[in-house]
Design a protein around this nucleic acid. Structure first.
Lengths: 145, 145
DNA sequence: GTTTAATTTGAAATCCATTTTCAACAGGGG
DNA sequence: CCCCTGTTGAAAATGGATTTCAAATTAAAC
């Protein structure tokens, strides 16, 4: 249950940072974990409003930043001018394939590419800390037969 | 002379699109080609102001979009909240290494990585149109000996 | 349970890069 | 030169992210 893991990690984070556990933070975490990945702040905000109209955009925004800070979420940016968040699977990293027609986002991972990145960077004197790889193209559903 | 090539391409673009060749557009293109790559709109605007105080930000912005449209420039986004533009070398593609300490940006290219990208995407039913690969790390100048 | 000190909330305001508006201006064909 | 159309630039609008601040909530202390 990744959910429980994330919830515990967030609780621990709040405690160690001297922050408080609130109703809103719980609601937001619940909904964040329930909803699929790659949601914008707006997306999550609207989903939450449907169930609890008394929640504020600012709170959703601040809470998502907390999630990122404590490591249970990662911020992404696919160039549409909106930050998106996804629940992070800790040990495994992945990159993204984005369909330019329908907007579908698929995750993938390839150790050979990672390997080459390290090699290339090393050759230029860099040690890599993180990277971003996004492939934009057309998925099979959107390609004319 | 890549410069002449870009200038001609832009001229052709203006003609075929029924757009006009103006003093400002020439100035902006000159300065864009002269200045190094990875400039933000603001950067270029300030450089231009030094020589010609009568040029407007909106014009620089619009003109950079024209450059991108006609293919002599590419828009980049390295996550600092500002779009950057670089002169595009047509036949060759490259990716970026960014030093998280000093902000230095190095370009690189590796056909093996490109190859693998196509392979991986194909396996998931995608045909790639373009991609973005950025490696963030620490350059040799910034690494403690 | 009550008090207290500190954090959190949410509506609204602010920020800031980008984009649009619009009246004055410039290009270039006729 | 004239006219039509595209262009310019100052200013305003936009839109997502972020901050402000008074009121509300939390959790520790009493």
């Amino acid at each position: 249950m990744e959910d429980t893991k994330s919830k515990n990690r967030f609780k621990d984070f709040l405690v160690t940072q001297g922050l408080k556990s609130t109703h809103q933070r719980e609601l937001i975490l619940e909904e964040f974990l329930r909803a699929g990945s790659h949601l914008s702040t707006e997306d999550l905000y609207l989903r939450l409003r449907r169930k609890n109209p008394r929640i504020g955009y600012a709170t959703v925004h601040r809470t998502l930043k907390l999630f990122a800070e404590c490591g249970i979420a990662e911020q992404r940016n696919f160039g549409d001018g909106q930050a998106r968040y996804e629940a992070s699977a800790h040990d495994e990293h992945h990159d993204h394939l984005i369909c330019v027609v329908c907007g579908k986002i698929v995750e993938f991972e390839d150790p050979r590419i990672e390997e080459l990145q390290i090699e290339v960077a090393g050759g230029l004197g860099f040690s890599i800390e993180r990277h971003r790889l996004e492939l934009y193209g057309c998925c099979s559903d959107c390609r004319p037969a």
